[in-house]
Computed example of a mutant assay.
Amino acid sequence: MLRVRDDDASAFAELVARYEGRLVRLMRTMGPRADLAEDLAQETFMRVFRARKTYQPGAKFSTWLFTIAGNVARNSARSIGRRHEVNEVDAPRSQDADSGAQLLASTALDVSGMMPGRIAEGSERATIVRAAVEALSERQRMAMMLSRFENMSYVEIAETMDLTTKAVKSLLSRARVNLKESLQAYIETGVLSMPSDRSDDDDSDAEDS
């Protein structure tokens, strides 16, 4: 990134090649529509390039990058919400997006002792698990993505999301509980029960605690 700051075009190309796949995967879960993931990843890189002259080495580059990505995802969601152009249920989904959601849910279920193999198989399973993950609040999903896909520590996630480490621990714990409750209800009744504790207002309580 220091080379990018000095207008080294090859260094910027190297950054894009190194992080593009990870950004697209993040945006498929964090963005308002899975089919916008690649566009949102490109917007993130453009913001990185525009901000290159003010870049100062401090935290890990990936922490800085994912902070920008989170802002891009939130701005996109607000913009689409204002235009009322999106129906989330009808938005196109890719196999990679399904896999990402299932991996998050499977991780949560492993922790709680519930094996994902007990859930319906095939496309039904993918739909149920994806719906459970998407029912989480935005910050719960992002915290889980950064923890499970990017292997970030509590401190790094806190820096990326501008939270305290205590709030991050609370977000991750509540995300796992919410996933467990949603999927346990489906296993027992065949009906997916969305958690009531899923709003960003609830998450802000953790930040203040």
Rank of each mutant, 00 (worst) to 15 (best):
A69D: 05
G117K: 11
T165H: 07
D98A: 09
T29P: 02
D96K: 07
S153E: 10
W64Y: 15
S147T: 05
M144C: 13
R74Y: 07
T189K: 03
L104A: 15
R130H: 08
S79I: 08
S123N: 13
S173G: 11
F149Q: 06
D96W: 08
E121K: 09
R47A: 07
G113M: 05
N178M: 14
R148V: 14
I80T: 06
S10C: 13
A132W: 04
P32F: 08
R93W: 01
T189W: 09
L179E: 06
A120S: 08
A167M: 03
T164A: 00
T63K: 07
T160V: 04
L23D: 13
V133N: 13
S196A: 11
V86Q: 08
S62Q: 07
P57C: 06
D203I: 02
S99C: 04
R130A: 12
Q184V: 09
S99W: 06
V24M: 10
F45H: 03
P116R: 12
L172I: 08
Y55T: 05
F49E: 00
V155G: 15
T160F: 02
R28G: 13
M115D: 08
D90I: 09
G190W: 05
D202T: 00
P92E: 10
L192A: 09
Y154T: 11
A69I: 03
P92C: 00
W64D: 02
M142D: 03
E138P: 11
Y19V: 05
R82E: 12
R148A: 07
L40F: 13
E188D: 15
T44W: 02
G190A: 04
L192V: 07
M46K: 03
N151P: 01
Y186G: 00
S123V: 14
R5H: 04
R198T: 09
G100L: 12
E14A: 11
M161A: 00
L172D: 06
R47H: 04
A175R: 09
Q140F: 01
N178L: 13
D203Q: 11
D200S: 09
L40G: 04
M115T: 10
E38P: 11
S112F: 12
F12A: 01
A59L: 08
S209F: 09
S106Q: 02
S79A: 06
S123A: 13
L15I: 12
I157M: 01
A77R: 12
I157Q: 01
R141V: 01
R3V: 00
N178H: 03
L65R: 06
D162Y: 03
L36K: 01
E159G: 00
S76I: 04
V191I: 14
T127P: 00
E88M: 10
R176Q: 05
V133A: 15
